[in-house]
């Protein structure tokens, strides 16, 4: 296990959720669930975060910020879409300004179902994300190595 898996810091972005899923995320931080046990910290700053927890569906207003928050996270990073809204647009799917789930804008690694998603499944989603995070790290490492060998050859 690497350090990355022991210390996943999250940033939480509320796209256009009904706040149901958000409350569940915050519930995960409370003494009952206490995600800090696993080293998880809610940083509130994409530049410090490894995992983007996104709730709600994508609409015209939040397209740009969502992409921006994602772009600002340093590699390696994973995205966890929380709730049905984040997956498909959920009950807001038919709204005039909603374009669908967040995968319309950014690549999603883990989907956590539920309306609202339960804290247990959110934590489960984050734990699943850790595995993907590790794979991405290894990929990054390989890429970095091959880059440097290329430089060396040149």
């Amino acid at each position: 296990m690497t350090y990355l898996q022991k210390s996943p810091w999250i940033v939480h972005y509320n796209a256009s959720s009904c706040n149901g899923c958000d409350i569940e995320i915050l519930a995960a931080l409370t003494p009952v669930f206490d995600v800090e046990r696993f080293g998880i910290i809610n940083t509130g700053n994409p530049k410090h975060a490894d995992i983007l927890l996104c709730t709600g569906s994508v609409n015209e207003q939040n397209k740009v910020p969502l992409k921006n928050v994602y772009d600002q996270m340093p590699e390696p990073k994973v995205v966890v879409a929380i709730g049905i809204c984040a997956a498909t647009g959920g009950i807001f799917r038919e709204c005039y300004n909603v374009s669908g789930g967040i995968d319309k804008i950014i690549p999603v690694d883990v989907w956590v179902p539920g309306c609202a998603a339960r804290p247990e499944s959110i934590i489960d989603g984050v734990v699943t994300a850790l595995g993907i995070l590790e794979q991405k790290r290894l990929k990054m490492l390989q890429k970095g190595n091959s880059d440097s060998t290329k430089v060396g050859e040149a």
């Binding site: 690497t2 350090y3 990355l4 022991k6 210390s7 003494p31 800090e36 080293g39 340093p74 390696p76």
Partner: peptide, 25 residues
């Protein structure tokens, strides 16, 4: 103090270790 279990004792080291595994943006 907040009624939680809290992270492992060595958590700060994991955090810093992790930060050094990340990209330097």
């Amino acid at each position: 103090m907040q009624g939680r279990v809290g992270p492992p004792l060595l958590q700060p080291f994991y955090d810093v270790g992790k930060l050094f595994e990340k990209e330097n943006a």
